[in-house]
């Protein structure tokens, strides 16, 4: 079983690195770019027999993969 986890910055949290990428794209001529925010993407392999994989993955997000002070997470089971 495989899962995808997306960890993204909550609205209102500064993202200096995203701003730098936005500046880079603008200076390359991509004038349509209005904003860039950088997040994290995890591919996680799970034992096929894992019980309650979604609940366990969400627990992993809360405990380690995301810092919920500044980040939100989304879990997809494939």
């Amino acid at each position: 079983m495989r899962a995808r986890v997306y960890v993204t910055l909550k609205p209102g949290v500064h993202d200096p690195a995203g701003k730098a990428v936005q500046g880079g794209l603008s200076s390359m001529g991509y004038a349509e770019v209005q904003g860039v925010r950088i997040g994290k993407f995890f591919e996680i392999e799970l034992d096929d027999a894992a019980l309650e994989p979604r609940a366990r993955l969400e627990e992993m997000c809360r405990k380690l993969l995301a810092n919920t002070v500044i980040e939100s997470y989304r879990v997809e089971l494939l």
């Binding site: 949290v13 500064h14 993202d15 200096p16 690195a17 730098a20 810092n67 002070v69 500044i70």
Partner: peptide, 16 residues
């Protein structure tokens, strides 16, 4: 801060 003993988080420096 990560273990919750202190409030807030430390983000990337403004200006990188």
């Amino acid at each position: 801060t990560e273990c919750g003993l202190l409030p807030g988080v430390l983000l990337r420096n403004e200006g990188l």
